[in-house]
Structure formats: C-alpha cells, structure tokens
C-alpha cells in the first residue's frame, strides 16, 4: 500500500500557483478526513476535484476558505497558501478571506430576500459601495457576468427563491462574484440541476475563468473533462494524482485513478 505517495505529473511551481497547499490534514473530531494533501492550483484556470463520495474533496474545498471553521470539532493542520499567505494564520481575518474566496454550494441557497438584496448583501457588508447607485451598478454587473441579468432585469424585487433551480444557482454565482473575489470555490454546483441548466452553468464557468481562479468539485467525469484545465483525484482522504485534465483522463498514472475514471470498482479489480 503506497496510497500516500503522490505524483505530480506536471509541477506548476508554487510561484505560478494561486493556491498551494502543503501537508493539509483535516479532522472532524477524532476522525481524520484528509491526509497530507499537497496541491498547487494555478490562477485563471479551472481545477476539478474528483473522486468517490466521502473521499474528502469537498472537505478540501471547504478548507480553502475556512468554511470548516463553522463545523464544531473540525480542525485543519498544514498550510494553505493563498498568494503565499497562509489562510490559517491567526492574524488573517476570516471575513476578509471569504470575501477574497467566494463559494457556490451544491444546492442553490439564495437568501429568502429579493434578487437585488441577494447580490447586494456581500458588497454592502464589506462596504464596497459608497452610494445606492454604486451598489446597483455592482448588482447589475454581477448579474450580467453570471448570465442572469437579462432574465431577471424586470423583477429585481422578486424573491430569489422564486427563480428556477438553474437561475437560483446563477444567482448564487452572481452573489459570490459580487464581492470581487479572486478565487471561486464550487461544490458540485450543477448536481441539483437539469442538463440544460447544467450546460448554462458550465458555459458560465468557462467564461469566468478569465477573471477568477476556479476550483470545482464534481461527481461527473464529463463535467470535469468539459470545464476544467486541471484535475485532481482524491481517494479515501488522500490526493492520489493531479495534472492537466487531458492527461488525467487519457493517461492516468495511477491504477486507482484509472479505475475511477473508467467506472471500475475496487471489487472488480484483479488482486495486486
């Protein structure tokens, strides 16, 4: 067993990386969910995290913007550097971190407020607009960038929850980019959506890449192949392999990766 051994097919170097993690362990109480993850995430690219359920990919994602802090008993060890700055540094303010690292969740979760308020909330609490007009400008720009503005421009006062699932998810993306983050974390953003809404979201992710560093967790191999430039495969809390998406899907280095991508389970695998 040498699962902890990790292979970096194409080292991108810490200098080019927007985010680099070194030896990240995550514990939920006594249970360890992540084991020594070293991963470099390049800027202005989409990095997909794939792996079977419970492999720790969501845990890793949530460690980046310290969302695990909100879970009682969760503990993170190791280093997660955002532009060379450790996000777990005690002097770093978690609120500022989350303004810089936006997040989109698996299930669309708009606030039970108006569409406008949903997008305006982040900029408002971070004091990003000096006037109502400036705030409205941010809201419109964010909705436009999320590809939702044309659909909702006549009903910005309608509750965010009145939109369809796909629209709600785009509203959540607009909300996340309204605070002008540098990184967008997406936790299976299309898993609750139908294929058409999924296609719209994927297209959007591709457009957003120009301005943001995106990390996306997905269960869909096709989605990972379609939207990401780099892919990291997690298994049982360890990072097994990462590299350019094309390589991971065509010539995986590791047996576990290949089995997962081709849909073979451990039981079907011939013995070592």
């Amino acid at each position: 067993m040498n699962q902890s051994f990790q292979t970096h097919v194409a080292p991108i170097g810490a200098a080019a990386a927007k985010i680099s993690t070194r030896g990240v362990d995550v514990f939920y109480g006594p249970k360890q969910a992540l084991f020594g993850v070293d991963l470099d995430i390049p800027r202005n690219q989409v990095t997909a995290l794939i792996g079977p359920s419970g492999c720790g990919k969501s845990t890793f994602l949530r460690a980046i913007n310290r969302m695990n802090d909100t879970i009682a008993g969760a503990r993170v060890e190791g280093e997660i550097l955002l532009d060379g700055e450790n996000v777990y540094d005690p002097v770093l303010d978690v609120v500022e971190l989350r303004a810089r690292v936006g997040m989109v969740f698996q299930k669309p979760n708009p606030f039970p407020k108006s569409i406008f308020e949903n997008v305006a909330y982040g900029p408002r609490i971070h004091g990003m607009a000096r006037s109502r007009a400036e705030l409205a400008e941010i809201v419109v720009r964010s909705l436009r960038r999320a590809g939702l503005f044309e659909e909702v421009k006549d009903r910005l006062d309608a509750p965010g929850t009145s939109l369809s699932g796909g629209q709600q998810q785009r509203l959540c993306i607009a909300r996340a980019i309204a605070t002008r983050p540098e990184v967008l974390l997406m936790d299976e953003p299309a898993s609750a959506l139908d294929p058409i809404a999924t296609a719209v979201i994927e297209e959007l992710i591709d457009e957003l890449r120009a301005n943001y560093t995106i990390v996306i967790v997905t269960h869909s191999m096709q989605q990972a192949a379609r939207v990401s430039q780099r892919t990291a495969f997690f298994h049982l809390g360890r990072l097994i392999e990462d590299g350019p998406t094309a390589e991971i899907f065509s010539t995986p280095r590791r047996r576990q990766t290949e089995d997962y991508i081709t849909g073979r389970s451990a039981a079907q695998r011939p013995g070592p």
Partner: peptide, 13 residues
Amino acid sequence: RSIREAAHGVGAS
C-alpha cells in the same frame, strides 16, 4: 444550514 453557509460564504461575520 444552507442559509448560514451562504452568509458565511460571502464573508458575513
């Protein structure tokens, strides 16, 4: 919980 996460996610204290 999703509402709390959404708020934390945009950087609410």
